[in-house]
């Protein structure tokens, strides 16, 4: 993957064309609202962090619910939160792609230069101080907002929504190994940004 590029969304084909299915399911299905509404805050939080705008986040969640209603028959049970967040993510990425200007971002994306350990071991600054500078809500929000979108989404899902790697991988449509490397780079970038911003 190239540095700092917002990629097309893998895995959204699953939502594009649900297979026709005869109503032969033996147990009654739960209703859409009983699956979706308990996760409205999670949906809004993810949309808010991906779009970095309150109004656009509401638009994304509304579109996601409409898309979810339309494709609810493709919901095969299981984790309703991951199912809904995946739709939210796809709607948000569609809008980000349409918006342009986000094609390249200043930070390294999935590149391999440097390491978290190197960053933290940088003799120019005390790592304790670097992380310490993060401990200020407004500042931390700004650091997180500055991350490349895929890293931001990994942090939001892992640390704010406290979801397991497996669910994050399902939402992002990538292997678990990719989730791990995105989290790794995100945390390295957070430490680096905290240090640079405070210098």
């Amino acid at each position: 993957m190239s540095v700092g590029t917002v990629h097309a969304t893998p895995g959204r084909a699953i939502l594009a064309q649900p297979p026709p299915r005869e109503p032969g399911r033996l147990m009654p299905a739960p209703s859409f609202d009983s699956i979706a509404l308990p996760h409205l805050d999670a949906a809004y939080n993810l949309a808010r962090w991906l779009m970095r705008d309150a109004t656009e986040a509401e638009d994304v969640v509304q579109d996601a619910l409409l898309r979810g209603l339309r494709y609810f028959s493709s919901f095969a049970g299981g984790d309703g939160r991951a199912w809904l967040l995946r739709i939210v993510r796809n709607v948000a990425y569609d809008r980000l792609a349409a918006r342009r200007g986000l094609a390249t971002l200043p930070l390294d994306g999935d590149g391999e230069e440097g390491s978290l350990a190197d960053t933290l071991r940088d003799p120019g600054d005390n790592p304790e101080t670097a992380v310490g500078k993060m401990q200020d809500r407004a500042r931390l929000d700004a650091l997180l907002a500055a991350l490349p979108v895929e890293q931001r989404e990994a942090i939001v899902l892992c640390d704010l929504e406290e979801m397991p790697y497996r669910a994050i991988a399902e939402i992002a449509g990538v292997p678990i190994g990719t989730v791990m490397s995105r989290l790794w780079r995100a945390r390295r970038n957070l430490a680096r940004l905290a240090k640079a911003g405070g210098a």
Binding site: L40, D41, A43, Y44, N45, R48, W49, A54, A57, E58, V61, L116, L120, P127, V131, M134, Q135, D136, R137, L140, D141, L144, I155, V156, D159, L160, E162, R187, L190, A191
Partner: peptide
């Protein structure tokens, strides 16, 4: 270090609510 970063993000970043 990782633990501090994670804990800080988990507790200090805003979790937006609808």
């Amino acid at each position: 270090q990782l633990r501090r970063i994670k804990e800080t993000t988990r507790t200090e970043a805003t979790r937006f609510a609808a």
